[in-house]
Design a binder for these strands. Sequence first.
RNA 1: GCUCCCAUCGUCUAGUGGCCCAGGACACCGCCCUCUCAAGGCGGGAACACGAGUUCGAACCUCGUUGGGAGCGCCA
Length: 477
Amino acid sequence: MVQFRFLRRIPMTVRTRFAPSPTGFLHIGGARTALYCWLEARRRGGEFVLRIEDTDRERSTEEAVKAILDAMHWLDLDADEAPVYQTHRLDRYKQVAEKLLAEGKAYYAYESKDEIEAMRDAAMAKGEKPRYNGYYRDRNEAFREDPNRVIRFRNPQEGSVVFEDKVKGRIEFANSELDDLVIFRSDGWPTYNFAVVVDDIDMRITEVIRGDDHVNNTPRQINIYHALGAPVPEFAHLPMILDKEGKKLSKRTNSVSVMEYREDGYLPHAILNYLVRLGWSHGDQEIFSREEMVKLFDTADVNKAASRFDTEKLNWLNQHYLKSDEPATLVPEFEWHLQRIGIDASKGPAPAEVIVALRDRVHTLKEMAERAKIWYSPITEWDDKAVAKHLQNDSAPRVLDEAKALLAAVEWQPEPIHQVIEQVAARLELGMGKIAQPLRVAMTGTQVSPSIDHTIYLCGREEALKRIDAALVRARG
RNA sequence: GCUCCCAUCGUCUAGUGGCCCAGGACACCGCCCUCUCAAGGCGGGAACACGAGUUCGAACCUCGUUGGGAGCGCCA
């Protein structure tokens, strides 16, 4: 055990964990928790690990595990170790519970669920908190086969539990408010509050970062740490994320799954940047690179109050990254979106050039893909108003004829094309509006598009000339 | 009902007793630029929940009120 003693002398490494229960997809609140755990570990040179809390065998699914892992991967929140699955650790929980039993820190109880419920109703009727009355606490009943057999933790009755939450500050609970919670269910599986503590001890977690819906569980868990003679980690309870109306986020009215945000066209780092600023800040700074987040983030600077999810601001950030990222780095995600709407990116302009043309005009890659359609497939719809206004007038046919002639021979690059348009304007003595709009309708069937030179350029010469011909038919028709 | 938590512009927030008749960002409005739509530039309106204290002085400290939220499971 020489090695062991040596290890003890090494300063404790910071370890954080993200512990989702696989009963659904990774939602946006969970993503923020994971981000904060990840950042805290990275900043302090520590380790970030994952634990799958799958002891609820009714609701946990394989698909959900995969969905969560996929989302974490997409966000690039990498864990330092393989995930720990609670269902693989049943023997360990049993072992720890036996120890507590042997030391008199836990006991068997045999009430049925109905009896427990009646107990709670009675307490409520008296204006008290619904809780266990401690019937078996001092009865020292031995183990016996019984469908109702559970193991309860013998919670201290005197004094109080105080902890210094890194975001909320000092929090105190009187032990008299706590009852003897079940740590092992009658089905032979441990309960959440027990498994979490055993796992966090075994996984050497030094800072527990989780949603503040867990604040009320914390004193119970601390008492279990004490009973087990284990050091208590630090706690940081993050406030909730509410929807735009200030209500709890729900699937009905919001996108909640991280992967839905992907489908909606958001960039992973835009989501991360949005999330890091939702509940945390560093002065007036809004834009944070991954490196800056890692350098600056601190759970101690997290806000105490709940915050609302604002899609408008996410949109702004997403566009910010669309505009400032190197286009080439956006291509894979963009192509993913093109493919989703049935566009074959190989049959049209280079995606990077399309990105440059559209990034000032859209907030998401989904929108971008939709608008990119005009360069990858033929025009199928014509905006009647656009046709009537910009094609069916005196100058349009002349503009189109003239442009067609010049475009047929020009070097196919945005700049020469731009010069062609200016030449047309000069020759026909017309303003740019009179030139650009008919061409725009010709190229797109609508009166809205990126700058006309780029719009034409991206069509490709052959297609551009074909579209001018088609427009001439309409202009004269 | 009981316990715990929270409270600055519409939203995210800066602010830790004087630098604040409160700063930034998103959104909104106006102007400029302009081949459309955007993007961009410039400017504008917009908040310390309320009431008592403490203090020479309070967005910041204390108490109360009101309003929100979470939890009170053999779910996590």
